[in-house]
Amino acid sequence: MKYIKIKRVMDFIFSLILLIVISPIMLCAAVAIKCGGQGPVLFKQERPGKDGVIFTIYKFRTMRLETEKDGHPLSDMERMTRVGMMLRKLSIDELPQLLNILRGNMSFIGPRPLLIQYLERYTPEQMRRHDVTPGISGWAQINGRNGIDWETRFEYDLWYVKNISFLTDLKIFLGTLAVILGTRGVNQSKSQTMEEFGVATKSLKG
């Protein structure tokens, strides 16, 4: 598709420009994370991209390294740092993914790249979300972010795959700005940022 090729060129140009323009913000975020406690500035994790190809995603670290206290596992929200909470509300934690866009692993707009272990849990239809390059924001993100269930999220992702176009991407971009300003749906619940797919919602495994 001609637009896909044009989209890649636009992704490269705009990610390079943004990395230069917002580098002071990223530097401030990195300093705040370092001052907030021990641990690396960046959170790195392998995720499946287009056609299921695995790549390393980059985000600013928003949680403490400790996963349990007094023998009890800590929830995502208990591990979240004060700096991390602010970064997530403003979506600043996502900025390092501009590096992923520059490298071609990701796009500005597309289905969010999820965990590798989810690959074996998808139905054949849900697997189609990997027909396109994953993005920082997508149709699901402007229609509920982390506040929607998995089934609805996948329906939104598949709608995007079938309707990808410049106008669709523009609509998602403008909707993303509104979501960031509203800070709605940042976390799925008071204890978790997002429930694991295939555990709390086993009926979706197909």
Score class of each variant (00 low, 15 high):
V132I: 08
E46Q: 13
E151N: 10
G84D: 06
E78D: 10
M85T: 15
F60E: 03
M63L: 06
L27M: 10
I33Q: 06
F166P: 09
T176P: 07
T67I: 15
H130Y: 10
R61N: 03
V9S: 12
L167E: 05
I4D: 13
T62V: 05
F60R: 02
A200L: 10
I180V: 13
G36L: 02
V179W: 09
L181C: 15
Y3L: 10
Q38Y: 15
L114M: 15
I20L: 14
I54A: 07
L204Y: 07
V9I: 15
L174D: 02
T193C: 11
I148P: 08
D11C: 09
R112N: 05
Q97P: 06
K69W: 09
V179S: 06
I17E: 00
V199C: 07
D76I: 10
G135Y: 06
A30V: 07
P113D: 12
V186H: 13
G110E: 00
I33N: 01
P134M: 04
A32Q: 02
M26S: 04
E94Y: 01
N187W: 02
K44P: 01
F12L: 13
T67L: 11
R112S: 08
F12E: 02
L16Q: 14
K171C: 00
T133Q: 09
G110I: 09
E125M: 09
G39Y: 09
I164C: 11
M77L: 14
M194G: 12
E196V: 15
E120C: 13
V199F: 02
G52M: 10
I13C: 06
E66R: 14
Q188E: 13
S191M: 10
Q141M: 04
Y3N: 11
M1V: 12
L42H: 03
M106W: 00
I148Y: 04
G39R: 14
T56M: 14
F173E: 06
L99R: 02
K59L: 03
P96A: 05
I148V: 13
K162V: 08
I172K: 09
F55Q: 05
I25K: 00
A200D: 03
E125I: 07
T183N: 15
S91A: 11
E78V: 08
G185P: 03
I17V: 09
R47S: 04
N163H: 12
I17C: 01
S23T: 01
